[in-house]
């Protein structure tokens, strides 16, 4: 297996966006790309990352391989790469390590690191295809700000989606807060658009702590998609055009 990115910045951001939620995980490498799927330790959230082979500078995977890696260790290794350095990952069949090589574009500095792989029991679990009742596309910075603002007032947020607006509400010891975002089109700047596709109205409550973890992916994508169905996990997708995506799933709070 050998994969090369032209710039380390994307991989650094991907790892930063998921490492606080999941610790040790397996990267599954096939000829179509690298992916990981992992639940957080409390089984409330699920992370799915896909990095497509066409998003790499060069990519080769002769035999499918599952590499067990501590994401904190991977973040440490990637700290040694400059944002504009190229990154090459190499793993040979049956080897217990993965190699990282960072090269500056003027080629005057090359650094190499070897990370020990871990044995991780991988369960063969899958994410079902779901038809959602409401899908909201919005700027990722808006979601990040909304979750950060409401976190000052409460631990959880109720997201209610109607035909032309979406409302985020919270309440806590010091008071209450809500943010309403109305659908708006923008043909010249699609990344600032707020689009709502509503088949059925949805209202769900989630722990803000997790949503704040998810919005760490905002630097990777100008837009985010919230897909919701009543009593069903929320899907928060950060698309990375031509590269892949990060999808987070979060179980709703259900009244006992």
């Amino acid at each position: 297996f050998e994969a090369k990115w032209d710039h380390a910045s994307t991989l650094k951001k991907v790892i930063d966006a998921v490492k606080d939620l999941i610790g040790d995980t397996s990267w599954d490498c096939t000829n179509t790309g690298m992916s990981l799927q992992s639940m957080d330790s409390s089984h409330v959230a699920l992370v799915h990352v896909l990095l497509k082979s066409e998003g790499f500078e060069s990519y080769r995977c002769d035999r499918n391989v599952s590499m067990g890696i501590s994401l904190n260790s991977m973040a440490k290794v990637l700290k040694c790469a400059g944002n504009d350095d190229s990154v090459t990952l190499r793993h040979e069949s049956e080897s217990s390590v993965v190699n990282f090589a960072f090269e500056s574009h003027k080629e005057e500095r090359v650094s190499e690191f070897e990370l020990k792989l871990m044995n991780i029991d991988t369960e063969h679990l899958g994410i079902p295809e779901t038809e959602y009742d409401s899908i909201i596309k919005m700027p990722s910075a808006d979601l990040r700000r909304t979750c950060a603002d409401l976190s000052q007032f409460g631990d959880s947020v109720t997201i209610s989606c109607a035909k032309s607006d979406v409302r985020f509400e919270t309440s806590g010891d010091i008071g209450t807060g809500n943010v309403r975002l109305s659908a708006r089109g923008s043909s010249d700047k699609p990344e600032t658009e707020i689009a709502i596709e509503m088949i059925n109205p949805v209202s769900l409550t989630f722990a803000l702590k997790y949503l704040n973890f998810f919005t760490k992916a905002a630097p990777l994508s100008d837009t985010v998609k919230l897909c919701m169905s009543n009593n069903h996990p929320l899907c928060v997708e950060f698309p990375m055009p031509e590269v892949g995506y990060i999808r987070y799933y979060l179980a709703p709070k259900i009244d006992e």
Binding site: S42, L46, G126, Y249, A251, E256
Partner: peptide, 14 residues
């Protein structure tokens, strides 16, 4: 425990 059940039911064995 309830969240866990929702997520465990969603994320199923294949």
């Amino acid at each position: 425990a309830i969240f866990q059940k929702v997520m465990d039911d969603f994320y199923v064995a294949i």
